[in-house]
Design a protein around this nucleic acid. Structure first.
Lengths: 146, 146
DNA sequence: TATTGTTATACTCTATAACTATA
DNA sequence: TATAGTTATAGAGTATAACAATA
């Protein structure tokens, strides 16, 4: 067990709070107003990791296959993804992001990075503080993957 | 404008990505399975900032008043909040978190901190790296508030 | 008239259960 | 039989429009 005074536990609490705050603030920035977080997360996964079967995509996003299926129908109707039948296994479907879909993700990321950069700039950090944030980013990714 | 090689812009991108990753991973931890992120956010706001009018709470959570009203009805039925009529202005209602509601928030935070601490521990960080995360947490909060 | 909150209605995201098609 | 995906149905959270009560 860890006590509240344990530096590790204190760091955990601080980091949990800070990451939530920052993520929440950034999440409100979108390229397309009508796009939900759930839809954006699916597009981002497809853009980063390439085509997925419905089942694989559902597992990655931690939703059920029927939920993913209906969400994909919506994304497909809006032209952000395409369903591609698998020629070797006719039960399967590959889902791929379209150019338009990828553009929406790229533009959203661009706007979020822009906001993030504006905030960091406004904070007038010292070179040391900037370096701390850089190092911490890498550590946070490492910690999150465990 | 900033270029992609700009250290500030690079830090912004790294930090945006890391904060999202970490927050997403933590968000999946709950004290009560049936509780949604939206409900938890409302309870956390009430616990941290005290009683709110419906309008004020809707603004804080960036949803419309009707959305907040229906969500509160659900939370009230589950015993997590109470509506208290304002004696001086009979249009207004104050929303307050109950002890049960506060316990749910506290337990959720406890579990998330526990997970966070376990991950940091598993990462076997050096004292320097731990200190970097601590400093960065404070900087991130400062940046997020701007 | 303006403000505070609710009700009516509709759409999306989520789930579970039941189904179809294919392996 | 098992697997991949869809359809049917229901509940929660979101919105806008229309409304009631009060200031």
């Amino acid at each position: 067990m860890t006590s509240p005074e344990d530096p590790l536990q204190r760091t955990a609490t601080d980091l949990r709070f800070a990451a939530f705050r920052l993520a929440r603030r950034l999440r409100s920035v979108r390229a397309v107003d009508a796009m939900s977080d759930a839809q954006l997360a699916v597009l981002a996964a497809l853009r980063m990791h390439g085509r997925h079967s419905i089942t694989a995509l559902a597992e990655r996003e931690r939703v059920t296959a029927p939920s993913m299926s209906t969400m994909l129908t919506g994304l497909e109707e809006q032209g952000y993804v395409v369903r591609i039948p698998d020629p070797d296994d006719r039960r399967r479907v590959h889902v791929e992001i379209t150019e338009v879909g990828a553009d929406v993700v790229a533009e959203t990321i661009r706007r979020r990075d822009e906001l993030m950069a504006a905030k960091i700039s406004a904070a007038e950090l010292t070179p040391h503080e900037l370096e701390v944030l850089r190092e911490a980013s890498a550590l946070m990714r490492r910690v999150a993957e465990l």
